[in-house]
Design a protein around this nucleic acid. Structure first.
Lengths: 136, 136
DNA sequence: ATCAAATTAGTAATGATTATTCATAAGGAT
DNA sequence: ATCCTTATGAATAATCATTACTAATTTGAT
């Protein structure tokens, strides 16, 4: 027996914000943005709605490599890059690796139904800032 | 100037435990194991030593967002599988994908120096348990 | 418009991890 | 071996992201 979900103003605004940005912000960042439209919004509401949207398969939660989770308005699998310096998460337009799950299944007894690939390094913006700072 | 580190009894036991298991346990699990050898050991000591060992490049920390980190006695990059049901983390003996970082670098301005590939699904043990439970 | 159920804001609680404290133990120069 | 410096230990408190709780409000089907 599944619960009926309502599209509240809060949930809609949260989803709109997430769909409108190219980056993958944290709950806290989304909270600060949404408060410009709903000043009395509470952070708990942001977390609750993000979890609902994730459970519905409407958004993706990216939760490794740093303390806070990042959220991605696109639900289909794709790959990401995270900056070791600023923690920012960016999309990486690399095609999905085909058959890798089948290949991985073949060598053990686990049932594999998903994979995730993340890259790490220094992002373009942090590289630029470094170059600027060393020219003093 | 780098600090000199001492190989204390606690640090050695923690490292030995981590090297002796095939799984990738949490700090809490290691704590419980190590207390059988050092009953008065504190959890803080386990965390501090795990962080030191990670910073030294002797072990790897696998963190999955807000839940507990898992630790891996092997420092070199390799791929993992995490069970959606029990949360257990296992090695996956799949060869490293060559040149993927170079390929990923080519399509953007980030400086990429690492990658991480994770698989998800239901582990062998949980599959077995399910089969057992449906035969009632 | 009515009304039960779902959702909210606000706050308290949780849980993993880190920092602090201070007594003890280890390393190195003499 | 002695002394001095510094790391380590255990215990506890603090932190931070996230979740749970509760009374009041809002939603959407009727």
């Amino acid at each position: 027996m599944e619960r009926i979900q309502r599209m509240t103003r809060q949930k809609k605004i949260i989803l709109d914000i997430l769909r409108s940005v190219k980056t993958h912000p944290t709950a806290e960042w989304i909270y600060q943005e949404a408060r410009q439209q709903i000043p009395g919004l509470s952070l708990g509401t942001v977390y609750r709605n993000l979890n609902l949207l994730r459970d519905n398969g409407e958004i993706m939660e990216l939760n490794y490599g740093s303390s806070q989770s990042h959220f991605d308005g696109t639900a289909a699998n794709h790959y990401h890059f995270q900056c070791r310096e600023c923690g920012g998460v960016y999309d990486l337009d690399l095609p999905l690796i085909k058959n890798i799950e089948t290949k991985a299944s073949g060598i053990n007894g686990h049932q594999i139904d998903g994979h995730r690939l993340e890259f790490y390094g220094i992002c373009e913006a942090c590289l630029d800032r470094r170059r600027f700072e060393e020219n003093d």
